[in-house]
Design a protein around this nucleic acid. Sequence first.
DNA 1: CGTGCATGTTACTTGCGGTAACCCCAGTCT
DNA 2: AGACTGGGGTTACCGCAAGTAACATGCACG
Lengths: 213, 213
Amino acid sequence: MDTTQRTEQQRSADRRRRELLEAADRVVLRDGPGASMNAIAAEAGITKPILYRHFGDKGGLYAALAKRHTDALLDSLRAALDAPAERRERVEATLDTYLTAIEARPQVYRFLMHPAEGSPGDQGFDVGKHSAPLLRRMGEELAQVIEDRLDLGPGSHQLARVWGHGIVGMMHAAGDWWLGERPCSRAELVRSLADLLWGRLAAAGDRVGGPGF
Amino acid sequence: MDTTQRTEQQRSADRRRRELLEAADRVVLRDGPGASMNAIAAEAGITKPILYRHFGDKGGLYAALAKRHTDALLDSLRAALDAPAERRERVEATLDTYLTAIEARPQVYRFLMHPAEGSPGDQGFDVGKHSAPLLRRMGEELAQVIEDRLDLGPGSHQLARVWGHGIVGMMHAAGDWWLGERPCSRAELVRSLADLLWGRLAAAGDRVGGPGF
DNA sequence: CGTGCATGTTACTTGCGGTAACCCCAGTCT
DNA sequence: AGACTGGGGTTACCGCAAGTAACATGCACG
């Protein structure tokens, strides 16, 4: 009765919410992160106030949208990282998974990395979470995996966290640059990054005939 | 005559431009990247259209502002990277220089790394330059240094570029996270990152008693 | 003197985020 | 049946910031 009815309405609201999110998705993918609430509402076949009833404000809508994609991407990454294989292979598989994802849907990627937060009065938004939460989440998850799986001696917790965020940042920056310039194949990029993580920078010899170092 | 006058006016215009930039700087440092053109104009003691005459649009002003800070930071980094010392020392010095800079003036840092927000429609902004050009410039410069100084065998050009952007991204992401959470001292962070670059990730042993990998 | 020309202003338009007030229709209670 | 309530929807509006005319002023040159 009361409960069944409430769940019924709940379900209806959830379905509506999903429809709205999919419409928003289409618009954001088409117009970029600067898509207006009016455009999104129009795409969904309704008007602005409904969006605000469901998501509070633009930040809320964008957060919900970002969460969907972020969760999906993180699932793929976890799968690659958890595969039964040698460490280097897993690292390469994870890098490749990430790069494949951003290559396949660059619009989604742009949106996730530069959600543009509040904006106007942006007062409604917490200043602390200025940046893309996706990078933070990836960094934290990777840190956890590193800490769980590797024997790093004393201070392993801190070390794992630094490495987690650092490696994610490396992947992100290299991917961003690569996506813009396409200077090489994905496989080459993956190899180069893995080589970097595998200490080839430290192992390289000084160039002969260069400036005297 | 003509020329002298023109240079005279040019100089005057340049001086004015600099004053405007410094005023803009003060406002952006105080109010964050969402500072309005009105506020900047008021701080400079003039009104909006003058700003637009000098910088075209908000993007132009922000680009000019960013260029100043970016150039300054890049100069410091070049100095640290060019110091006569062992490679590891230079790497650590460069990391430390970067972290010291973002620690000393987080407002500047936020502005440089997330200029896209702007404000509401942000439609005055070119979609192409979505991200911080600072990262790209740092990546390119580092790539150049790596290629010039290290002997990487065949494919060294590509490799150096990938590494340049990757390392810069690592530094940036770790720095961003560190700046927000302050989980350890700057020196510890520098050491951890350098260790990562020096192959400690690849060299670490599997954790005993953990899940069977 | 008037004619450029750079510098400055006021006052406007446009477009967006966000909100208040109203509307309508399906059930429900008495 | 008829008033009552509440979720889904709309129109019309506010405030604010980017960007733009159109008008005003000071100063060199012929």
